[in-house]
Amino acid sequence: MFFLLLRKIYVLIFITAAFTSCVTKKKYDDLSARKSKLDLDIAACEKAMARVQADRKSVEEKLTELQATHQKMVKDSAETGVALRKTRSLYQELNNTYDKLIKNHDRLLSNSASESSRLSGDLARREAELLASKNQIDKLSADLKTREDRLNEMERVLAEKDKAVTNLRNKVSNALLGFKSNDLTVNVKNGKVYVSLSEQLLFKSGSTKVDPKGQDALQKLAQALRDQQEVNVLVEGHTDDVPVSKGTLGMKDNWDLSVLRATEITRILTNAGLTPERVTPSGRSKYVPVAQNTSADQRSLNRRTEIILTPKLDELFQILEKN
């Protein structure tokens, strides 16, 4: 919606400039070219916003599905183990009964022919039950082993993923050691690495141009991530609840400010060597604060950029698809 409004404003400015000023054809052509480029930039931003929202929803759904499947497999394995133990107990009882029947067979032969026939039928039935129980045990044992193998494989991959996330956090932290902790933090949350950079490190108030010190931090981060091809990068711009000053060029509100800052940081990261396909800019405005906006210090904490590093989960999804 705000991209459409922005486009209308640009068109209005263009028309006003064209019809209220005496301009040469060269200036008119220059204004037309600038309008076309702005239209392309707005379209690209809209496309990127749609893609990041779709990707985020897809990753959250897949993670939810993965967690549910993992819990179900653990529950199913436990239930199968209980069934196996019960069946083994039944198998042992049937074996004991069979032994007793064999021991009493000679003694019972002295009974009447009908009694002997009845016992023989009972013995045959017991033998059939034993065979059926053995087959069931074999089937349950094979099924339990398959589930345990898949569960072990999933736990192995999850452990490798956690190890990769930890290694990634350490690598990023080492690359950014020279910066103050109140300007830059690196944490792990929900299986992702969060690099949080303060506004003080990156931007002057209300600006979308990254300061030299912030550019240095971003270039070092990009250098640490160049060989991490299995990691997707999401750049989220965040603001406090103070409205954008009226007359700020190119910005209507905090949505614009957060998106433009995220886009500028994305350009720096890709210019420093990250492939554009891995990096997605996103603006969150004032709606995801980390502190209440009741003091200057708390607002300062909310004015930040978060770079979220997410390892790909292809191997885990392949394990799930085997079932």
Rank of each mutant, 00 (worst) to 15 (best):
N323F: 00
N254K: 04
S300G: 04
K220I: 10
M1N: 06
L158K: 09
Y91R: 14
A175Y: 14
R261E: 07
E129A: 10
T266N: 06
A78F: 09
K312D: 03
Q298C: 01
N323P: 02
T310N: 06
D211S: 09
F203L: 10
F19M: 06
E127W: 03
V235W: 05
A262R: 04
F14E: 05
D183Y: 09
R118Q: 13
R126N: 14
K171N: 15
S245T: 11
L40K: 12
M154K: 06
E115C: 00
R261A: 09
D138N: 08
T266E: 12
E264N: 12
E160W: 02
V242D: 02
N182D: 15
T80R: 12
E93R: 15
L320G: 03
I137G: 03
V195K: 14
A48L: 15
I265A: 10
S198E: 09
V242H: 01
A83L: 13
E79S: 05
A33K: 14
G191T: 15
D253P: 05
S205H: 15
A291T: 05
L130D: 01
F19E: 05
A113M: 07
A142F: 09
Q71T: 12
T185C: 03
S181H: 13
K35M: 15
L131Y: 06
F2H: 11
P281N: 08
L269A: 03
Q219I: 14
E46L: 02
K322M: 07
A272T: 01
K134I: 03
R56D: 10
G121Y: 03
P311D: 02
V244W: 08
L249T: 11
Y28M: 12
E230N: 14
L176S: 11
S112C: 06
S110K: 13
L316N: 10
D240F: 10
F19D: 02
V279E: 12
L234F: 10
D99L: 13
S258F: 13
G121C: 04
A132F: 05
R267V: 06
L119P: 00
I308P: 09
K171V: 06
S245I: 08
A44K: 14
Q200T: 13
R107C: 10
V11Q: 13
C45P: 00
T263P: 00
D29M: 13
V172I: 07
V59H: 10
E61H: 09
D149N: 14
D39E: 08
N111R: 11
K312Q: 11
D30K: 06
P276Q: 04
M73C: 05
S58K: 13
E155T: 05
F317C: 06
I268W: 06
R51S: 11
I9P: 00
T87E: 11
L260R: 15
I307Q: 04
T280C: 07
A124E: 10
R118F: 09
P212A: 13
Q71P: 00
Q223I: 00
D76S: 08
I308H: 08
E264Y: 08
E315G: 01
I268D: 07
Q200S: 12
D314N: 13
